[in-house]
Write a protein that binds this DNA or RNA. Structure first.
Lengths: 340, 340
DNA sequence: GGCTCTCTGGTAACCGGTTACCACTCGCAC
DNA sequence: GTGCGAGTGGTAACCGGTTACCAGAGAGCC
């Protein structure tokens, strides 16, 4: 059943080299021969065996994208963008879900399955600062969304601190002074959570204010459910809240559901900001003010950096690994618009 | 740099067969030898070449999942579930985005890239009834979410008609009589849209009512934006509306944003139902009544059917292809709860 | 007309695994 | 001590491409 290049060669009366030349559009094949080969291919219904080609070439044309969970809109939209960007470069994307757990992330880095693809784009959540050595891998890799985990790996980050500071300053500019912080939970201080928290605190500090830790709602995973829970926890402490800075959009949406249930109006009583600019936030009512990190750019940059490594080999030892930090833009929407 | 099995064999002082036996946990290797091979593997940092193994075995351990777009929550959550289900069976998932276009779907079916994986789970949107012949492929495939496109291909569908009928009857049960239908657009009558529309019409008919086509809002793609647009179109026609049956959740959410903007209260003035039970709908306010097709079950079933084909070859010609129809459950939430 | 030079295409080695087949060793029974 | 069988592991072919190297043919030039 399986038709090979040799079969095609035999039927066309040429050698496998010639068939290969035709299939790969190489020069130096006479039009007559080319046509004969084409005809044989059609006649036999020949389709190239990608695995054999991969073995021979030493590359597969596939890359792995490892994200926490596709059901989180940010990662779904990011994966969408990565798949498109990779496709534009001729690569296909294999997706691994780590659930954000350190073990699964280490497994992605070390398991034999990794060798099914040419390179890896990893969006780590569970890796700790001390895990830098495991990132010392011998295959092309790009890190996403984190900074300073390891200096030798190219990575694409976003302006987490700036973005969160801008969101916070925006709320302060509305006259809100009792801000809750939703979603922080980062003992290591290396993740996006820690950076966004820092931006939040810097903004308060800049306004001469101090953050009351009782207005912090922790959330280990960043989902609507944990955002709701964190918001509930803060409100249950009985403190007044007139603004919410959520560390990402789904947390913000979860928080808004609780505010609604408690009879607090957004933005009249409580103004809310998120982070990520997921599509959902443009259609909730009120729509969600958020920080837009330009996912398309991040995805394209990550793919380009990886493809660069794939084509040109590892970063020379005397050069720093590329680090791109995407700018963030505050998108003000109804959840933080002064009523009236 | 690349360490091969031969290298390990040389260092361990055994043959490649023995190394292979150890790596694959085959029997008949003495503990001493096994230990020696293990030591050599560690010493050299050997990692198996997956491509070579795939070529040799004739299978890759990967399957392709082709969905319209990951940025649509339904497909993100579905992909999440498929990846997990495939992982449980030892398979890794390669994702292709078709954008719902017929051309891209045909490409997925025919391109050489398809041969990078062992099988395909296709969630078609653009394929037409007349495309049945192209589904006559010689590799394992499972169709998702559609019915009756082709009798020889195993497929997993959901009870589209029943689900839509249940949602519609629910609104009728609330006394709503001026129902808008949001999202229909299916000239061929084969897609989920046509089936859900039929369920809607059947429910109306069952109640002795007739649907006013002016209360239909068309949407080619099913997104929040097109849902909003369709809702706007219906309202702009000036007809009174006291209920909305949206063909899926994002359409419903888009519609709800417009209802809100027009000062119509949900559910007081207009009750709304969706379809899919995406997580988002549980956290909007009001939360969204929807039809839950049990995505996990669908994903698991699709993977199991595909793996069955992978292991046991094609469906015998004298047997019908398996067809599984997942039941739908109506999840009543605040968007359609009688006020009070 | 003979001789390069270029173009075309054949041969065979190689990528790195798997595995059919076979040979050897060793233990045990007679 | 010899024979036999089970257990262990070696050899080499094979999966289906790519490609280095080479040979032959045809064209152009003197």
């Amino acid at each position: 059943m399986p038709v090979t290049m040799r079969d095609v060669a035999r039927v066309a009366g040429v050698s496998v080299k010639t068939v290969s030349n035709v299939v790969n559009d190489f020069a130096h094949v006479s039009p007559t021969t080319r046509e004969r080969v084409r005809a044989a291919i059609d006649e036999l219904g020949y389709q190239m065996n990608f695995t054999a080609r991969s073995l021979s070439l030493g590359r597969t044309g596939m890359i792995t994208l490892a994200v926490p969970e596709l059901r989180l809109p940010y990662f779904a939209e990011l994966s969408d963008a990565v798949i498109d960007a990779a496709g534009a470069q001729g690569y296909t994307v294999l997706i691994e879900q780590t659930g954000g757990s350190r073990d699964r992330e280490l497994e992605v880095l070390t398991s034999a399955r990794r060798r099914m693809t040419d390179g890896l784009i990893l969006s780590p959540l569970g890796l700790r600062a001390g895990d830098a050595p495991v990132l010392e891998v011998d295959f092309p890799m790009v890190l996403l969304g984190e900074r300073a985990l390891h200096g030798r790996v190219p990575h694409v980050a976003m302006a987490n601190v700036d973005g969160a500071r801008a969101a916070t300053e925006h709320l302060l500019g509305l006259g809100r002074r009792r801000l809750a912080l939703i979603g922080t939970f980062d003992r290591e201080g290396v993740g996006a959570g820690a950076l966004r928290t820092r931006g939040f605190l810097e903004a308060l500090e800049g306004a001469g204010l101090e953050h009351d830790p009782h207005r912090t709602g922790e959330a280990l995973a960043w989902t609507r459910a944990t955002g709701a829970e964190a918001m509930r926890a803060v409100l249950d402490r009985g403190l007044e809240v007139d603004g919410v800075v959520a560390l990402n959009d789904v947390l913000a949406l979860g928080a808004m559901s609780v505010l609604h249930d408690r009879g607090l109006r957004v933005p009249d009583d409580v103004a809310v900001t998120g982070f990520d600019d997921i599509e959902e936030g443009r259609f909730t009512r009120p729509s969600l003010t958020t920080v837009d990190p330009d996912r398309e750019l991040i995805a394209r940059t990550a793919v380009d950096l990886l493809v660069d490594r794939l084509r040109n080999g590892p970063v020379p030892a005397d050069q720093p690994a590329p680090e791109v930090v995407a700018d963030c833009v505050l998108r003000v929407r109804a959840s933080s618009t002064r009523p009236g």
